[in-house]
Write a protein that binds this DNA or RNA. Structure first.
Length: 290
DNA sequence: CGATTAACCTGGAAGC
DNA sequence: TGCTTCCAGGTTAATC
């Protein structure tokens, strides 16, 4: 589901509950998500303390007191929900009791911390998400993380970087921006939005953009990500924050899911079109995105 | 090597 | 109402 702003929003929602908490008990209700869980997954989580919570691209990483890092990718529909205990709950029982859990609640952690107890539940309808446990020293070389490109909100990301990274590529600009080995964290929505803001066609061969255009594109990517982050992400079908509240950046979409609507760019009288590129919907304005 | 396509899953919406 | 088809925010493996 989630792209960088949604994953970062989830991380921020989980941090106050998870960081510093002791995992008293972990319950894993099936053998796999997209991939099998690692061996003895529940047992290796149980008894560990969560030291901190960070994000890399669309991954959430939680270093544990055991010397391992808990790695989470939300896939398309993964989400975390926090349950706080109720007075009626039996001591030692999951607050969100077994047998009463919702469909697709696959992993549940009972946490203890100074402020009391809480349950964190991972729910994933389509099971495109995945989790792993890896020794801290091997996190950066993990197969899922090793090839990732730069963080679009980081210091390395700039127009100059994009110009260099896209040079010589004949792949469509849209596809290049979705390539996580170049820029890590963009997905279909924010690529469409950034290209519209930068007035660049998703069909352009990536290697043909000028230095000036690369600068515009980098600025547009940063701007849309920062605005989405400030809005708590975008809620389409599934996305909710860990506390159950909804992101609202979807109300600010200028291109995504706006087929037939007027382009909002200044001095443009165009209409947003939809086309399919490598199997995914692209929304753009053929009038001003060139 | 590079670039599309199919596949992994489920459920909601739209069409008939 | 019920059945069918299409579509979805991601990533990988297989195929042109």
């Amino acid at each position: 589901m989630p792209e960088l702003p949604e994953v970062e929003t989830v991380r921020r929602g989980l941090e106050p509950v998870l960081a510093g908490a002791l995992i008293e008990k972990a319950e894993v209700r099936r053998a796999d998500l997209r991939f099998p869980f690692p061996p003895r997954f529940a047992a290796r989580l149980s008894g560990a303390r969560v030291l901190s919570l960070r994000r890399r691209a669309k991954f959430i990483l939680a270093p544990l007191s055991s010397g391992e890092t808990w790695l989470v990718h939300l896939g398309m529909t993964g989400r975390f929900v926090i349950h706080h205990p109720e007075a009626s709950d039996m001591p030692g029982a999951f607050h969100h009791a077994a047998g009463r859990h919702a469909a697709h609640d696959h992993v549940q952690l009972r946490l203890a911390r100074e402020g009391g107890r809480a349950d964190v539940v991972y729910n994933d309808v389509r099971r495109f998400g995945f989790m792993d446990l890896v020794p801290d020293a091997e996190v950066e070389s993990h197969p899922m993380l090793a090839g990732l490109g730069v963080e679009p909100l980081g210091n390395e990301f700039s127009g100059a970087f994009l110009l260099e990274a896209l040079a010589g590529r004949r792949t469509p600009l849209k596809a290049a921006l979705l390539d996580q080995t170049i820029v890590a964290g963009l997905g279909n929505i924010y690529v469409c939005e950034a290209l519209n803001r930068a007035r660049l066609s998703p069909l352009r061969h990536a290697g043909t953009i000028s230095a000036r255009e690369a600068g515009r594109l980098a600025a547009a990517i940063r701007a849309v990500l920062e605005e989405a982050l400030a809005a708590g992400g975008s809620t389409l079908r599934d996305f909710v924050q860990a506390d159950g509240s909804l992101g609202y950046f979807q109300h600010s979409f200028r291109a995504y899911d706006r087929e037939g609507a007027a382009c909002t760019n200044a001095r443009c009288a165009g209409t947003i079109l939809r086309l399919v590129q490598s199997g995914r919907s692209t929304f753009y304005c053929a009038r001003c995105q060139t």
